[in-house]
């Protein structure tokens, strides 16, 4: 089970080999890749698009794309789990766009977009079983450097980033959820990302300097 970013690199090692073989047309390797990664990618997609049937359709699209693009995967440029997760996130975010252009479909799905304040209560009751974005952020921060970097953010900054990243909310949607002006939220997100960037990059360079 994948619990902290520390496992990320470890798992990525095996996945690189599987992806390389899938890129050469090895279906068995691709099946193993699916077995090892699909439950993570479905969790990522479901955070952004809560409709289970749609999420599984998205997952299907993601893996068909991965099969096609496997030969172009460059292990020197990114870790396989990072690459797979980013493909899944992009598909899920694109699916929200399509959802918003179909207003008649929004009755059930509107709560996931958290569009205006009236939706908040519905949203919260729907979401009550799974951990909130803030819990996720602190869980993700178990790895040492990430935890130290998260501590540098104010609570509001942390929440704004968590909502945007995990739930796939736009700036306007985050502002509505937090009942804060759009400009304020925008600058929270921007400053959080700048802080995380310099902190994580510094930690990374420190680690490699120590010969990790």
């Amino acid at each position: 089970m994948l619990r902290s970013p520390a496992d990320w690199t470890e798992r990525s090692h095996d996945l690189s080999r599987l992806l390389a073989r899938a890129g050469l047309g090895d279906r068995a390797a691709f099946a193993t890749l699916y077995e090892r990664t699909s439950s993570h990618l479905l969790a990522v997609v479901l955070r952004i698009n809560r409709d289970r049937a749609q999420a599984e359709d998205i997952l299907q699209e993601v893996y068909v794309n991965v099969w096609r693009a496997a030969s172009s995967f460059d292990a020197a440029q990114s870790q396989p789990l990072t690459w797979l997760t980013s493909i899944a996130r992009n598909r899920a975010i694109d699916s929200l766009r399509r959802l918003q252009t179909q207003p008649q479909m929004r009755a059930g799905a509107a709560s996931s977009a958290g569009r205006d304040s009236e939706d908040d209560d519905v949203y919260d009751t729907v979401a009550d079983e799974s951990p909130g974005p803030l819990d996720l952020l602190s869980r993700a921060a178990e790895a040492r450097s990430l935890a130290a970097c998260m501590d540098q953010l104010s609570p509001n900054q942390r929440q704004s980033v968590a909502l945007a990243f995990f739930q796939g909310l736009s700036h306007a949607e985050v502002a509505a959820r937090m009942r804060q002006p759009l400009g304020t939220v925008k600058s929270w997100v921007r400053r959080s990302l700048a802080t995380l960037k310099s902190c994580l990059d510094a930690a990374l360079h420190g680690d490699s300097a120590r010969g990790r």
Binding site: L2, P5, S38, S39, L59, P131, A143, L200
Partner: peptide, 24 residues
Amino acid sequence: NERLMPLTAALAPVEPSGDVWRRI
């Protein structure tokens, strides 16, 4: 991507139904 994607490691995995792999 490398900075932010590992944040998703905290998500609890969700097993897709067997149908998804059949369709792929």
